[in-house]
Design a protein around this nucleic acid. Structure first.
Lengths: 148, 148
DNA sequence: TAAAATTAGTTGCAAATTGCAAGTAATATA
DNA sequence: TATATTACTTGCAATTTGCAACTAATTTTA
């Protein structure tokens, strides 16, 4: 029975690092939180602030300010919803879409490179395992409530 | 061929969250970076500042200040090395050791809980996959240098 | 249907975190 | 012995963070 935490500690650190370094596209430099935000906006249709804030699991006040920054950078647009005037609908600008896509491509390229060190069988196994893990984590009662 | 990035994005977000919430032990609250630092100090014998800073991949100046904070919190001690007077040797205080151990236990407990949603075979497969992934990532030429 | 409660989002702090540039002191190199 | 390198620290200055307290819109409820 090996030390599971060690394994995950290393893995998450690597991904943290990767996220940190992923995020400049030409002259545009986005932080890793910002890249997550772009990613989630891109994935959804007409999402609200709260939806994205929940998806990336950051405080709504922090999120509000991050969006302000992204708007200044002309990567994101914010429009009042006609259905509910409290709600702001988020979308990517053309540039934002480009940045999101470029980051996505480079991340996938990186993952391809990583997987190139494995044979087909290993590759499949690893992918399936990550899926299993994600499912198990979402079922877990412990995650994301204070642990102690 | 599914979207690998999506899989990893979700996984790392979950672990990020977990790390965020992991880290209060009684009255002592440590940030996730600080818990990584404690973890790495605990793992090594008589490590230097630079060694730990490299291990957790943070800037040495930021690290220097984080250590100052941890010393004020009485979780870490710093002693000049007798072999090389430039070097500071780090160690955990009794309290620091306690905090590190408690966090480690709660993380492992969480992981056990997550794995409890799987059968033995799946469990083994997932663990083996994480190992494979870590190895592949360490072989990668792309990781941790600017991607674009 | 008017008052009360909830929801979405924004600001004002104040603290913590970050990294670059420039420093000191100790050691290694030429 | 002079020069470079290494280990670490400090001075900024910018960014990021979260809590509390706010506005405005919508729902609930009595």
């Amino acid at each position: 029975m090996e030390n599971k935490r060690e394994l995950f500690q290393v893995l998450t650190r690597r991904f943290g690092l990767l996220n940190k370094n992923c995020c400049s596209v030409g002259a545009v430099v986005v932080s890793s939180v910002q890249s997550h935000i772009l990613y989630e906006i891109d994935k959804r249709t007409a999402p609200s602030m709260q939806q994205i804030a929940d998806a990336v699991a950051i405080d709504i006040t922090t999120f509000s300010r991050q969006i302000q920054t992204l708007i200044k950078m002309e990567l994101v647009k914010k429009n009042p919803s006609s259905a509910d005037k409290r709600v702001s609908v988020l979308s990517l600008t053309v540039q934002g879409k480009f940045v999101a896509t470029t980051i996505d491509e480079s991340m996938n390229a990186y993952l391809e490179e990583v997987f190139s060190h494995m044979n087909e069988f290993e590759k499949d196994t690893v992918i399936r395992s990550i899926k299993l893990l994600n499912e198990a984590m979402s079922k877990s009662s412990v995650c994301c409530t204070p642990l102690l």
